[in-house]
Design a protein around this nucleic acid. Structure first.
Length: 646
DNA sequence: GAGCACTGC
């Protein structure tokens, strides 16, 4: 007796999303469906504009606000919103609109430049704030905002906002919130209904359940593509294989299914298979991470299979380590996933968990990103806005105090804040102006002293990228060999320089990238970011200088930013175990690093990722003397015996 | 011997 529901036969109970959501399934799924741009992938593939967010903002402007601050996800949109509002005639007449990124929005203010452009005084009270608590899942918040008048009202009744509204009571327009679903919804049209199916009882393996479900849908349901949400690459590849094998076992399935994996690590051409029209007589099955939850839209999906899990990042401020763990998704996410089935016609969503679980145990929303991430970037933003009392600050979603303390410590040790926790000049102010991780920014500024800015901005650009390599499963050997052509004894950072040089020498050739297992699109972006960083440095009055072959100079500059991430190889370690200097955490060099199995005695890393072990990513060999040279305050205090023999 | 997903200038 199967544990799983049988589509069309014994569905335990079904409910419509409509019932839960008060009428509309969803309108806008992702931050990128803002009406101003497209998600990176969709922009390149489909070139389809979306007009959703824009309408919503206009609605607010026309009906409520005196001053609006819109949290946005990208600089493109951030600059386009004021522009479009200006065109619509709303920038004048006592209405101020400013746009900023969500993290900056957290401080209820805007950057000086934006403020100046929009005529908003920093620190001025505002009428309304449209905010997204979670950058990564901003789609979740936007659904509320766009689709549901009730939730919109709730948002406006938020005490934080009410406070500001009271101050603006003189304005006639903003008194009452709309009592019906705003008209913008009819402009957008609505999604189709999606029937929800649950398991009768919990399953022991969601992977197996997903496979069974897909086969069962294929057996019993009418045409329409299937989208399956799993957690990561391993599970996805396994599921693809299992479904193909099972389909072979059953003659009836053998010709009908086209099973495709989808995750960000796939090469562009593999990802593009997803968008090719389904061949006649075939049913497409896409097994995906939550990249398909908000970032990518697949037309033709009628059935969604939701495992109820995703990989999520959690930051532990005590150990300063980010963990990547498989965790249950929120109800909001579950609805978002289900909504993927109702884009072209009414669809069905099969949830691989019980209804009771959904109702009673699933949390309504994901934990706001602000509460589970490293706050270094946000804190420096606050500081640069002149907000000094970080701990007493009225955050939209209060982060753990430990995170704030940790962030202050890091900034202090970087020399960005002084003993009174004020921005230092010029370093602090300059770091605040570079829109990268403060450690990278500090590294860039130090490169001026070490005369290697040419090289460092290349490294900074590559480090801000996910990865410049293409995923090469199945051709591992070739991939490793290709990588060896660039590998530098100093480590990953210098290796990136070699890749960049090769790319430039090839005339930025995509063919060259393909041959060397390098992500062409990532490299194009590196060139782009690099260009912008060089402009920024010029504004600081720094000229680009190259250290030529003297890698010691640039390694010292890197250490000036990343000295806090230093590790020492355990003396008798057989398996390449390192310990961090700060917390004696056991860490290992990530297998993707060129220093994997090389294991130099002393290294610094760019970031830690924790799955089954703590892995250092982007690793560079150092001389420990550089640590004391770069940060005597930091190392003398923490480790007085650093000069002991290593 | 391993990689959830976004973004900024």
């Amino acid at each position: 007796m199967s544990k799983f529901w049988k589509p069309g036969t014994e569905r335990p109970r079904s409910s419509l999303i409509d019932d839960e959501e008060g009428g509309v399934l969803f309108v806008s799924a992702s931050a990128s469906s803002s009406g101003f741009g497209y998600s990176t992938l969709e922009r390149q593939r489909q070139r389809l504009p979306v007009f959703k967010y824009r309408t919503a903002i206009l609605y607010l402007v026309e009906n409520h606000a005196t001053t609006i601050i819109v949290g946005e996800t990208g600089s493109g949109k951030t600059t386009q919103i004021p522009q479009f509002l200006k065109e619509a005639g709303w920038a004048e007449g006592g209405r101020n609109i400013a746009c900023t990124q969500p993290r900056r929005l957290a401080v209820q203010s805007v950057s000086a430049r934006v403020a100046e452009e929009m005529g908003v005084k920093l620190g001025e009270e505002v009428g309304y704030t449209i905010r997204f608590e979670d950058v990564t899942n901003s789609g979740v918040t936007m659904i509320k905002f766009l689709t549901d008048g009730v939730l919109l009202r709730e948002m406006m009744d938020d005490p934080l906002l009410t406070k500001y509204r009271k101050r603006n009571q003189g304005d006639a327009a903003n008194d009452s919130a709309p009592s019906t679903v705003p008209a913008i919804l009819s402009v957008e049209g609505k999604g189709f209904t999606v029937e929800i199916y649950y398991l009768e009882e919990p399953c022991s393996s969601y992977l197996q359940a997903a496979v069974d479900t897909v086969l069962s849908i294929h057996d019993k349901e009418p045409v329409g593509d299937i989208l399956v949400f799993l957690t990561g690459q391993d599970d996805i590849d396994a599921a693809v294989q299992l479904i193909n094998e099972n389909a072979l076992d059953h003659r009836s399935h053998s010709s009908g299914l086209l099973v495709l994996p989808l995750y960000s690590g796939l090469s562009r051409s593999d990802q593009d298979l997803i968008f090719a029209p389904t061949p006649k007589g075939k049913r497409k099955v896409v097994i995906s991470t939550n990249i398909a939850e908000t970032s990518l839209t697949l037309d033709g999906v009628v059935y969604v299979v939701d495992s109820g899990f995703s990989k999520q990042r959690f930051y532990n401020p005590i150990t300063d380590i980010e963990n990547l763990v498989v965790a249950p998704i929120s109800k909001a996410s579950a609805r978002q996933r289900a909504g993927r089935a109702g884009r072209v016609r009414p669809g069905k969503c099969f949830r691989l968990y019980t209804e009771e679980y959904f109702m009673k145990e699933m949390s309504a929303e994901a934990i706001p990103e602000m509460q589970r991430s490293n706050l270094v970037g946000s804190v420096i933003q606050l500081k640069s806005l002149g907000i000094d009392n970080i701990l007493g600050f009225d955050w939209p979603a209060s982060p753990p105090p430990e995170s704030m303390v940790r962030a202050l410590e890091v900034l202090y040790s970087l020399g960005v804040l002084d003993e009174d926790a004020k921005l230092t000049s010029p370093t602090g102010f300059q770091v605040a102006e570079i829109p990268l991780d403060p450690m990278i920014s500090k590294m860039i500024l130090s490169a001026n002293t070490y005369e290697c800015t040419e090289e460092i901005i290349t490294i900074a650009a590559v480090l801000s990228m996910q990865s410049i390599w293409v995923s090469a499963r199945g051709v591992q050997k070739e991939f490793d060999e290709a990588k060896l052509r660039f590998a530098a004894a100093e480590g990953d950072h210098v290796t990136y320089l070699n890749v960049y040089k090769g790319f430039i020498q090839s005339g930025k050739s995509s063919q060259w990238c393909y041959k060397n297992y390098i992500n062409y699109h990532a490299m194009k972006k590196v060139v782009d970011i690099r260009e912008q960083l060089s402009k920024l440095l010029k504004r600081f009055g720094m000229s680009l200088k190259s250290c030529e072959r003297d890698t010691q100079k640039l390694r010292k500059a890197i250490v000036a930013g990343f000295f806090a991430n230093s590790c020492h190889l355990e003396a008798y370690s057989q398996n390449g175990m390192y310990k961090t200097i700060r917390h004696s955490q056991e860490v290992f060099i990530h297998p993707s690093s060129v220093l994997f199995r090389v294991n130099p005695k002393w290294v610094i890393y760019h970031s830690l990722v924790s799955t089954d072990k703590h892995y250092m990513r982007n690793v560079m060999a150092i001389d420990p003397d550089w640590l004391t040279e770069a940060a005597p305050h930091f190392y003398q205090r923490k480790r007085p015996n650093l000069s002991a023999p290593f």
